[in-house]
Design a protein around this nucleic acid. Sequence first.
DNA 1: GATGAATGAGACTTCATTCAT
DNA 2: TATGAATGAAGTCTCATTCAT
Lengths: 195, 195, 195, 195
Amino acid sequence: MKKNKPKYNQIIEAAVEVIAENGYHASQVSKIAKKAGVADGTIYLYFKNKEDILVSLFEVKMGQFIEQIAQSINEKQHVSDKLYALIEMHFRQFAKDHHLAVVTQLELRQSNSELRWKINEVLKPYLSEIDLVIKEGIDDGSFRGDLNLPLVRQMIFGTLDEVVTNWVMNEQRYNLLAQASAVHALIINGLSVKE
Amino acid sequence: MKKNKPKYNQIIEAAVEVIAENGYHASQVSKIAKKAGVADGTIYLYFKNKEDILVSLFEVKMGQFIEQIAQSINEKQHVSDKLYALIEMHFRQFAKDHHLAVVTQLELRQSNSELRWKINEVLKPYLSEIDLVIKEGIDDGSFRGDLNLPLVRQMIFGTLDEVVTNWVMNEQRYNLLAQASAVHALIINGLSVKE
Amino acid sequence: MKKNKPKYNQIIEAAVEVIAENGYHASQVSKIAKKAGVADGTIYLYFKNKEDILVSLFEVKMGQFIEQIAQSINEKQHVSDKLYALIEMHFRQFAKDHHLAVVTQLELRQSNSELRWKINEVLKPYLSEIDLVIKEGIDDGSFRGDLNLPLVRQMIFGTLDEVVTNWVMNEQRYNLLAQASAVHALIINGLSVKE
Amino acid sequence: MKKNKPKYNQIIEAAVEVIAENGYHASQVSKIAKKAGVADGTIYLYFKNKEDILVSLFEVKMGQFIEQIAQSINEKQHVSDKLYALIEMHFRQFAKDHHLAVVTQLELRQSNSELRWKINEVLKPYLSEIDLVIKEGIDDGSFRGDLNLPLVRQMIFGTLDEVVTNWVMNEQRYNLLAQASAVHALIINGLSVKE
DNA sequence: GATGAATGAGACTTCATTCAT
DNA sequence: TATGAATGAAGTCTCATTCAT
């Protein structure tokens, strides 16, 4: 399997660095090859084309990302803790890997619609994780029974995504992780005053 | 003032249509000129360069967009109604103008970082509108006093943006406007069960 | 006759200034029109096209230039003095009008071959003046009888032209006029030691 | 080193031909590529941009040109013979390569000021060769001691340049080489009658 | 005569991908 | 496997000229 070959990962890592440093449009295949220490042509022994590098990059990185989150969720008993774990790990991973944060929040969004469709596919398992938490909360009575599942998922993902993007666009000048509990409270309680 | 000249608006409208139909990267200046019914060179009498068309497009359309929302908010007395008006008008306007929805939610995000910075500038008045509503809610006791203003703004905007993007990516197959009240409830109450 | 109309000369003078200040390739018709204080279209009431402005500019300016030299020559009796007058007036006029020097020595040479042919036509009366002096010198025994007329003319014109071009390219940092007598000596006597 | 690669020279030669045949402004990169038998993009593996082709062309060709002249001068003992060799080789080389003559005397002068500055740099070694001959003549008493070196250089170069340009503009209808001895005599003796 | 908004042809350069070695 | 020289399609913008007013 190609993915075990060292050059495959070399190229993926090189792509993340090159895109984070140069931006999406200035990241030519030749630049990625150079950073990876291989010839331009070698790229095409491991990837179908440039888009395939990007999709693979997203697959690999997001696979790990989601894996971490799923694991973190599974360690918790209560739904509220699970939701917190999800938020915390989402932030924690981007806080730890600034390159990845820049690439996923800013640069990869400059890709064309076709690539963004594939990226959405990669995100599906993450969205399913979110769904599981919501469903569990509804089932055990922690969350209201009348919640519209896709909508809640969109609220949660949209919020996390926007918070991370803001952090990235502000050049990561503040502590992203410190926001986790406030975001958690907001999602659980909304804006209104509780009795 | 240039903006009163008919060709200026002709070109803006043509750009929205061309980008919505062909996608960002396949929208050559010559295509926009043709759709607008002017010569290629005429574009450059009204816009500095291609990017300037896109920024201007966003400025004009978002200016109207925000204006509509602000007006709608001002007609309401209570904060909860204002927030609802904001959500409803956000959805209503994209539901009414599918071309614009595609352009703002998908195509314009493919632009380079410089353009995205300018787009962010255009969005600022909208974010200020959101802030005003939140502040009012806090002041009159409708919302909790310990809310983190930027975070709440990010939650609201992130949620609306994600909901609209999902609707666009699903080819607008369902009624976006119908989601307004559920989204409103979610933002006000969060996920938890109220006493 | 067009040439008596004030705008004709306004445009010529504007062209000299614009070309001297901006260089040949950055001298758009619109820039010349603006400097002349007329509308772009007005240019075409007085000149057939852009090339016609340049040729006319050269005709007018060189006509005056040659006229001055011819007059100066005619005031002299002896051939050697006539040659000196020619050299001196050639230098004097460029020294007096730096704009014109830049335009004729540098900028107008960037024109295409067709225009340069026409410019050569304009120069012919000047070359004839040179010829007259040489012929007179041969006839009265001041100059050798075996001189090849076109060659001598080319030497004289080539030398003057190169001296002026060097002065212009050195940003006119030295006194061009002061070179006249040395140039005159060089042309009359050559390099060799006289007995 | 790039200059040893065959395509480098192929492109240079093609450029000389294309410019000589079509004129400077009608010499598109695509035309040069076609004549050189390479793809358009290949040009940019060997040259930074179009101007770089022209500068390199001039460097290579003038390098050889000057080399030939320097060699020819060195074979002579007496200063007068050296000056003759310089003139003779100057003419001989252009007479042998009509394309090059057209390109250097007419077409390359249409380039913008920046390029012409670079061209002047390339010419400097040639001007130095001329200087050496003049100095030697002054030192050994063949030439007058009061000669102004830069002025003499300008006279010699200006004369040769003008003679060649005239020959080119007359479509090379006469024997350029045959002029060498008359030009030599003119430079050495000037116009005056020697005792 | 005078205006100036509109026209539209034309070319340099980049970069993803290939293929002979 | 690995290389990297070569390919060639494709698009933005300028500016001389026109013509309706």
